[in-house]
Amino acid sequence: MQAGLNHYLIVGGLLFCLGLFGVIARRNLLVVYMGLELMLNAANLVLVAFSRFNNNLNGQVMVFFVITVAAAEVAVGLALIVALYRKRRTAHVEDLASLKL
């Protein structure tokens, strides 16, 4: 066996599926957020694999940008979760079903 592009794509796809499952099935807001992180990481892995096997470094620069944006997104999202928790005293998605605070 030679670990080629297809193998990395399969790993990335499965990791994305796991993240999606976490987002849909878990009820804790923070674990849902971790599922989002897993999906972002799966996309990053696929980008790096394509960059490696197509002989093109632009994919890796893209991953660099994605990691930076993901860090900013996590900071803002967690601040929103903390603000929401202060208002509603819960971080459970079923208790956060209304649009009004």
Binding site: Y8, V11, A71
Partner: peptide
């Protein structure tokens, strides 16, 4: 896996930013 794909810089950034900064925030 990034190291296996010869993306050494991204592997280091992954550890520093994700495992270091983002997870501490979590």
């Amino acid at each position: 896996l990034y190291v296996l794909l010869h993306a050494f810089f991204l592997a280091a950034v992954q550890i520093l930013v994700y495992a270091g900064a983002v997870m501490v925030l979590f």
